[in-house]
Design a protein around this nucleic acid. Structure first.
Lengths: 276, 276
DNA sequence: CAGTGGTCTAGACCACTGG
DNA sequence: CAGTGGTCTAGACCACTGC
């Protein structure tokens, strides 16, 4: 009989116990927590299959249906991906096609392929002590090391004023200016060389090289006026309205691991959102 | 044996049938469709309880578990609300506290009570022929009647520049300018009087008086410069960056029923969003 | 073909609500 | 207390994948 598998019934509220506040939680929630722990511990890597429902049911000594409910919830949370006939896989955000995990920007015309066709240009990457505001949001102590990355995203296609010629090959237009702060402790070997050499999404690099997986994010949006260096980098006149997007991304356990301040030029693009 | 209840097995793909493409759909999906139809038909009104799981299971001749799965999905779709020990209720968007169903605007400070503390001021309400662009988005024929509503939302609290006095009672500052278009056919008796007389959320009025329920919405956000009448209504200088929010709201069956173009002054407020 | 997830059933028991 | 939704189980069968 395999050991090292936490006994579920131990955490389960014992029937008949009249103790006050152990905050009863259903079995499938406990299973969910156990699976999340395994994910955090790296027992199964992104893209790999986790054990089958039957195996997990045996491991945790519960029925298949209970495991199923746990996995179902994790699938709707985008932590796992189910594939009928094949198995259940650890979600790897930034798969093929998911070039930009959280980027909600879409071109006004030709809406096929949401964030596709964007070039990247790294502007800066330096290590520094976290400024007070950044430290607060990333839950760091003031003065702790942080990595700052600055980069530009450029649209390859011709801009809105559709002249007859130059359908392709036109000068790419800057669309997004990103300022990114990361906790230095988590991203030890992150350098400019590493960033420019990397083909593929940035979050994919974080996953592969630093074992940091983004689970969810919160954004605050504002309209601001372009100014100074930001304006010239985006090739717009000072005063041009820009969409400011402040994003805080979280990993397992709601730990903040990335702060990103983006400026979007929304002349030929828009930020799309779905409300339920 | 009760009649008038659609026989599920009829729609269910008959086993052994080798016909090509009836596009097999699971039982619980069919149940879901049937329940949605009942909602559309107004069999159960918003806020009311639908029959218990056991009753529905009997009505549709399926097991309780199948009904449960159908209801579960509708609950996560915000169509139904489950309340343990009481029953399952038709979601009534715009309940107490949900003053603004889709408004994602939050004050920068004092984030308690998201959209609370906003006053409304009706500017205009007129019936007209739908302009081409509006007609297209609302799936109307050009020239069909439409209702246009224009209104202002004002923040009651004192603006950002916190002077020592006047914590309350300060002049309210305009924050949102909304332009709303509705299909005239669906909103026959909608007048300015009706709107100003109504206490409570606009979507609540739509539900109660016109049986139009908003299920989901799509938004496109842009940063634009304030100009002309819009600027003066929002009490900002021309050129001030504003957040433009174009929202298309849908009812059952993904039918578009409201087009809204909002201009948000994001000086002391921001648009918040959660990404998964 | 075996193994996976997906659906459906039937029944037991628990937790919450209200009279 | 009866009635509701919430959890858990056990087993059957189906649909998809890959060998």
């Amino acid at each position: 009989m395999p050991a090292a598998t936490p006994d579920v019934s131990a955490t389960h509220a014992a029937p008949g116990s009249t103790e006050a506040a152990p905050a009863f939680s259903p079995l499938y929630q406990q299973i969910k927590s156990l699976i999340v722990s395994s994910l955090q511990a790296g027992e199964w890597q992104p893209g790999q299959a986790i054990p089958s429902e039957m195996e997990l049911a045996a491991r945790y000594k519960v029925s298949q249906g209970t495991v199923r409910k746990a996995i179902d919830e994790m699938a709707t949370d985008n932590l796992l991906v189910r594939r009928q006939g094949k198995g259940t896989f650890v979600a790897t955000h930034a798969e093929a096609g998911t070039q930009y995990r959280f980027l909600r920007l879409a071109p006004d015309v030709n809406p096929v392929g949401a964030g596709a066709g964007l070039q990247r240009r790294l502007l800066d990457c330096r290590r520094m002590r976290a400024p007070a505001e950044v430290a607060r949001l990333l839950a760091l102590k003031v003065g702790e090391p942080a990595v700052q990355v600055r980069r530009l995203l450029l649209a390859a296609a011709a801009p809105a004023t559709g002249s007859s010629e130059s359908a392709a090959g036109a000068e790419p237009a800057p669309v997004v200016l990103d300022d990114i702060w990361l906790p230095g402790a988590l991203f030890k070997g992150l350098t400019a060389e590493r960033l420019v050499a990397w083909r593929g999404a940035m979050y994919r690099l974080f996953e592969a090289e630093f074992s940091v997986r983004m689970i969810r994010a919160e954004e605050k949006l504002r309209a601001v006026a372009a100014a100074g260096e930001d304006a010239s980098l985006l090739a717009v006149a000072p005063g041009t309205p820009l969409l400011s997007v402040e994003r805080l991304s979280f990993t397992y356990g709601d730990r903040p691991v990335e702060l990103r301040r983006g400026l979007y030029h929304t002349q030929a693009h828009h930020y799309r959102n779905e409300l339920n």
